[in-house]
Write a protein that binds this DNA or RNA. Sequence first.
RNA 1: GGGCACUUGGCGCAGCGGUAGCGCGCUUCAUUCACAUUGAAGAGGUCACAGGUUCGAACCCUGUAGUGCCCACCA
Length: 707
Amino acid sequence: MELKKAYEPNLTEDRIYKLWEKSGFFNPDKFKGKPFAIVMPPPNANDPLHIGHAVFVTLQDIMIRYHRMKGRKTLWIPGMDHAGFETQVVYEKKLEKQGRSRFEMTREQFYREVWDYTQKNRDVVRLQLKKLGASCDWSRETFTLDPAIIKTVYRTFKAMFDKRLIYRAERLVNYCTKHRTAFSELEIRHEERKDPLYYMKYGPITLATVRPETKFGDTAIAVHPKDARYRQYIGKELEVDALLGKRKIKIIADASVDPAFGTGAVKVTPAHDFNDFEIWMRHKNEIPGPLQVIGKDGKLTEKTGPYAGMKVLEARARVAEDMQAKGLIEKIDESYIHTVALCYKCGNVIEPMLLSQWFVRAEPLAKPAVSAVKSKQIRIIPSHQEKIFFHWMKNIRDWNISRQNWWGIAIPAWQCKQCSSWTVTEGKTPKSCAQCKNADLSRDPDVFDTWFSSGQWPFAILKFPNGKDFKTFYPTQVMETGYDILFFWVARMIMLGLFCTGKIPFETVYLHGLVRDKDRQKMSKSKGNVIDPLGVAETYGTDALRMALCVGNMPGQDIVISEDKIRGYRNFANKLWNVARFVLQNTQDLPKSSKPALGVKEKKMLKDFNAVAKKATALLDQFKFSHSAEILYHYLWHEFADKIIEESKPILQDRKKKSARQYALLLILQDSLRLLHPFMPFITEEIYQKLPLKSKKQTLMIEQWPA
RNA sequence: GGGCACUUGGCGCAGCGGUAGCGCGCUUCAUUCACAUUGAAGAGGUCACAGGUUCGAACCCUGUAGUGCCCACCA
């Protein structure tokens, strides 16, 4: 019964978490009730958790603990992500530091090393999630490379291939020459740049370009069909000085050309420009196809004579120089501003590359996803994010899911060496080509875009189609994640969930914001402004951290956090602790079984409390976690502690009145602990364990919600 | 170029039709009494700007400005 003067989280948190784990109540199996499930967004198994993870742990654990206390059969299912490309990049950086490179290793060796690395990180992340109080069911923890998950992904791939929702195509794709892989359009960043715009003479026609080095890949010159300046040339072939000697090039008319830009004439380089590729598609019969002059290494190919082997920028300067020397440059506009595409990871300029890849036909998947949200089957919080979702969905493009990486789920597709058609399986190596029965096949060396597999996560982790969990918990109730992955992940989960299971994957999407420091700066290691969640949890207690991440945290808006704020909630935890200390110390002589008649004042106190409990509950039901926490904070401190306890002091000295007051204080304390438990699980449990109650559950976690 | 938000006391945010609230900070006072990780009292806002709707607007509508974010194949 002896309570320390101040609450010391470090003396209680680990012990309390063990108590919960031992109780087995994280596992929903033995509970009845209506199911309530949240699939945890799996943290990457390549790095310790950062403060952003602490946000999702806090919000999801609040919902989970609340619904568990409400009597629902509650499942929070944890997992971890192999995080394909992300992890590969992290591991390659490690290799680099050791003076090694994956290109000196076999693919198998690399894979094995990354596997071990991620398994070690899983242990770290698991401990961190526990430290943050996550009440998830560890017996169901899943890794995104578990055989059952891969099997699901393969089954989906095959089903989509069979239904022609996945196709193989040679297309221009976004390619990073440093990472040597293609990306979807979501993985590229756009940046404004000022680059010289060269006006180059192609015979009688002058055209403007920022990329003279691609001129060797030109297959035509395009002008607007109605442009009087060039009408005489349309359909004709001109002989031009191509720097590598004379060369013939055809002039074509295409409406996409803007007569007002530059000279109104554009060189068509289908192998190295998205627009030009489209132009070629429209004029396939008139002009030659893509002519690749830049390789996957970002250097000019042997087709470029003296420029072969040069990197793009070097070649650009040299080509411009040489053309200028020949008098082929009319002028250079040095102040041209345009946007360039960059690799989101390394910032290198993305090189459009002609590659044969697997694509998901997006439109047929997007339609049902849009109607699911339109019809309110799925609700997105905050609701304005729905508009952003619709906007993206409306303009959705086919999705390149091939990645030229080593770390990831290998694509189960084999190409026939004879007829070059593709055979897709659910993972097994096929004996022969599905088309021509030839037995000589070679496997696609590529892996899936990680989002293709994580897009299937909710039903995969619940063991679709026949698993008990799938039948019990799917569709899940809430998907809580950051707004920054609305397209990457949430949209894909809705599309793939609907396609594979015919049902929505979740009923509500709650999107939280990015964590920023007190100067509104994004946290990053390079800025040195990161708050390590485990570090501050150690200093101020996990409960304080959770409150700091919850209060003032509005859906869809960035979260400003500072150590001052966390300290403030540490003070609150201490206040709660001392309230409990006061109540316990002053009610020791109240017999456990006594139920004294309450006076008018006590009745009023309880009535007020119940109103607060109701309000806090309603707010939780509306996903207003911040408000809910705030009114509880306010009640506990400024009503219960400042007013009720203060005015109770004299009454507790009064032999006649005291027992009714003692009883009321205990009741309010007890129920306050229940209300606060989802937000501050450790301290509330610690106090609960010390309450002198007649009937007590094994843990506060499964006590009944008081409103 | 298109879209989505935001603009309320020093800072961070609520409030979304009846003439402003919370937390932090600040000021003054108190202090061995559950808690100094404390208590009491207090200062501080023409709710970005301009119109409109309304008996009444921070809240609804229109426009303007600033800020932020997302999308986008302008050579």
